[in-house]
Nucleic acid binder design. Structure first.
Lengths: 187, 187
DNA sequence: CCGTACCTACCTGACGCACGGTAGGTGCCC
DNA sequence: GGGCACCTACCGTGCGTCAGGTAGGTACGG
């Protein structure tokens, strides 16, 4: 709680705002107000808005990569692992109709600074790599095939989250994910 | 060309900008510059930014509904019809890495005025209704089942567009759509 | 056929606010 | 007394919005 550094508190508050309102919805003044300092002081920790968001996404990716690796290590079967994965995206929606950080930023791409764009790409690559690892034990397909399939799952899950977010109704997400399973897209 | 009214020209230019930069990226001053009038004059046609974007989305939905109905009337088989559908989303990407208007807005939901939000919902409903009509002739499933499947396809295609947009690389879209077909999600 | 009334299609100029960012200070702990 | 962790004060820009004006056109009563 108070063991967090101010830097951490800024990043945490900023992350929540970006997942709610997007990059352009993140304001230094509002952010400063919520963490209890003045907006100018944020520049003490992060020189620019781009640098702040870059740091946030970087941490976000690293944390999820660690979490997903744990899920994979505790693996029982593919179905359970994939359910854990889709649950993560659902929980984000449940938490104030927020979107996945990088999903939000993907839509905004054309108004992002370069350093943030590259992190958004990293997010996708990490997810696809991980899904590919989940997929591979069960199939004899070529690696190229697996990669494509993994990308498709990532895109589909992201899309489900986006449309549920757009209607502020988590049920759309769970319905769609269920349909993915029925169709065989998600194991 | 010059037969368009100023109102039309404003809407057209604004639509392109929103598909590129989002709602928050649309500025009256810039918009005015591109259509060659002063920003204040836009208020002659549209009282607020929300009203402008609402009108744009409304027209966007109506146009696509008409187009999709044509596609369905010229129908040969489900596969061809669905290919036409996915091609629409691809072409939007090809046109300056733009996103589908309502897809963009869905991500931004939490900073949109109410009148725009309702139009975003309408967009999704229209798409799902249409896909359901494509699906139904081939399956004996319950209507509820069909609706869910249609929603899943809409979400998946939207997601594919989003991740391709996020990396500014149309190949991601086409790859993912192909994988959807292979998995049987899209007929 | 003139004049008044009213319309469309813009314009100018300003309002108040919020934005990201900067310069230079202040207090306090080691 | 040095440096960390902030502060105040401000900059320039851009935002949506509004009040009020004007040039040109149309409609119509007398």
């Amino acid at each position: 709680m108070s063991g967090d550094t101010m830097r951490d508190r800024i990043m945490e508050a900023a992350r929540l705002t970006v997942q709610d309102l997007g990059y352009s919805g993140l304001s230094f003044r509002e952010l400063a107000k919520t963490v209890g300092i003045k907006s100018a002081s944020i520049h003490y920790y992060f020189p620019t808005k781009g640098a702040l968001v870059e740091a946030i996404v970087r941490r976000y990716i690293d944390r999820y990569e660690r979490y997903l690796d744990e899920v994979l290590n505790d693996a029982t079967d593919r179905t359970t692992v994939m359910r854990r994965y889709t649950d993560v995206f659902r929980d984000t929606l449940l938490n104030g109709n927020r979107m996945c950080l990088a999903g939000m930023l993907a839509a905004e791409r054309n108004d992002l600074p370069a350093e943030v764009r590259t992190e958004v790409v990293r997010w996708g690559e990490m997810n696809e790599r991980w899904i590919a690892r989940v997929l591979v034990p069960g199939e004899g397909d070529a690696p190229e095939e697996i990669r494509r399939r993994a990308k498709a799952i990532f895109a589909a899950v992201s899309g489900a989250q986006m449309i549920a977010h757009g209607r502020d109704e988590v049920a759309h997400y769970t319905d769609v994910i269920a349909a993915y399973r029925e169709s065989g897209l998600i194991p």
